[in-house]
Amino acid sequence: MNIVVCIKQVPDTETQIKIAGDGKTIATDDIKWVMNPYDEFGVEEALRIQKAKGGEVIVVGAGPKRVTESLRTALAMGADKAVLIEDDGLYGADPLAVAKILAAAVKPLSPDIVFLGMRAVDDDAGLVGPALAEFLDMPNLSVVTKVEVGEGSVTVQRPVEGQTLVLEASLPAVISAQKGLNEPRYASLPGIMKAKKKPLEVKTLADLGLDKAGKAEIAALTPPPARAAGKTISGETAQELAANLAKALREEAKVI
């Protein structure tokens, strides 16, 4: 069973995001880059399936050279090989273009399963998974919290509004991981040393015969409005509190 995990490198969730001078991108100077946390679930699940069924785990990333570190982290967790499609313009590119590029890189690896995170914590678009499935012509199983691999098929669970959808698909398939799928392992210290020697292949868009021309472009980025301090509603009795709350909602917040 060969498994591919697509990895995006994103700013550490603790990073204070600032908008760059061009008003369209984020300032990357002080950013610590990490593997998208949802992709970690994908790596972990791939390694567990590999342990049970054998085969190879290959991680694929697209972006500037710094993405190498996230790929090496996945190798340190236990993945066997990595492929980087190196291009400085790919960070923040149109998700459809990214999906097309990933599809071109993933296809020749002929995977049985492709994992990725259900969304990236930076742009939150959640588009690459479904688009990748489309471009690879594989079934798409999104937002998954449990995976069971059968003979030529896979059964997964997706939580929906307090219930669980059970979906079955034939393999190969694309699965996007949701929190709760597993508890990702740490890249152990011996793993970090072993990862140094594992193969990491670097490709360019030209190697794939593609360019990054997408359909969507970011016109402007604006910071969210600063959150004002909360307001405490006062009142002696429950009735009075409720009346004051209703009054504030109507007259100040203007929502009712």
């Binding site: 610590k32 990490v34 190498t68 570190e69 090496r72 982290t73 340190a76 740490y186 890249a187 152990s188 210290l189 970090i192 040393m193 990862a195 140094k196």
Partner: peptide
Amino acid sequence: SMEQDILRKTVRDF
């Protein structure tokens, strides 16, 4: 080095 960087993140996370 990249390994030292990965190590720091791993141990911090742990």
